[in-house]
């Protein structure tokens, strides 16, 4: 935003209740833009709520969604078929579109059971108790939880194959009167940031800290 001459000023509001962000804060245009949000496979699921109601910026960052399994009960994940009949855990409020997209329809068809407790710690507790087969979460959130819960010796990260690759985007409500202008603004800003090298500086400082902490 700072890189953009058209933007005179902007404010960032931190609202910890994520479930209110998209609807109503964005849909009612109380807020203009929100981040970070994942983009569902809108080609395959055009009637997904996010696809119907939001515009997505170019990806700001890209991450892997991985399986975290118990060292005592390893599971093979060489193809999607290996997930059939398995029980996965992901806290409430996190997206589930990766379990449906790319023709999977795991939840719709009842091929995979998804358990959604309140916290990450709940998921890892259920993993230890053998109530689920794997925790399915992005690599950074998962690794951080492993470290915080001191579970690094007990949990394996399935590295051979991620559940999905997810981009993180800025979103704007399609009902916002200046929706397209806002979207252009953010994309132009991102592109300028990448050209100037500032994008890389920001990623560098965060990623260096993150990988060191693991």
């Amino acid at each position: 935003m700072k890189n953009n001459a058209e933007v005179k000023d902007f404010g960032i509001y931190v609202v910890n209740n994520w479930s209110s962000h998209l609807d109503p804060l964005l849909t009612d245009a109380v807020m203009d833009l929100a981040y970070p949000w994942y983009k569902p496979d809108c080609k395959a699921m055009p009637d997904n709520w996010r696809c119907e109601n939001l515009y997505f910026s170019e990806p700001m960052f890209e991450i892997l969604v991985l399986l975290f399994t118990s060292k005592d009960r390893p599971i093979a994940f060489n193809s999607d078929k290996d997930m059939e009949g398995k029980t996965l855990c992901r806290p409430k409020g996190y997206f589930t579109h990766d379990l449906e997209g790319n023709g999977r329809l795991w939840l719709t068809k009842g091929l995979v059971k998804l358990v959604q407790p309140i916290t990450m710690a709940d998921c890892f507790e259920m993993l230890e108790e053998g109530k689920i087969d794997a925790v399915a979460i992005n690599e950074f959130t998962g690794r951080t939880a492993l470290k915080d819960l001191n579970l690094e010796g007990k949990v394996d990260i399935v590295q051979s194959r991620p559940l999905s690759i997810e981009g993180l985007h800025v979103v704007v409500g399609k009902s916002h009167p200046q929706a397209e202008e806002m979207l252009n603004l953010i994309n132009a800003g991102l592109s300028g940031l990448k050209d100037s090298g500032d994008y890389q500086k920001i990623i560098d400082s965060h990623m260096t800290r993150i990988w060191e902490s693991f």
Binding site: E62, L64, S160, P162, I165, Y199, Q200, I203, M207, T208
Partner: peptide
Amino acid sequence: SKNHWRGTTNLYRFNAGLE
């Protein structure tokens, strides 16, 4: 690079293709 914005995702793209 570990600091690349697509570090692990591009690594995976390559590894999956190689496999």
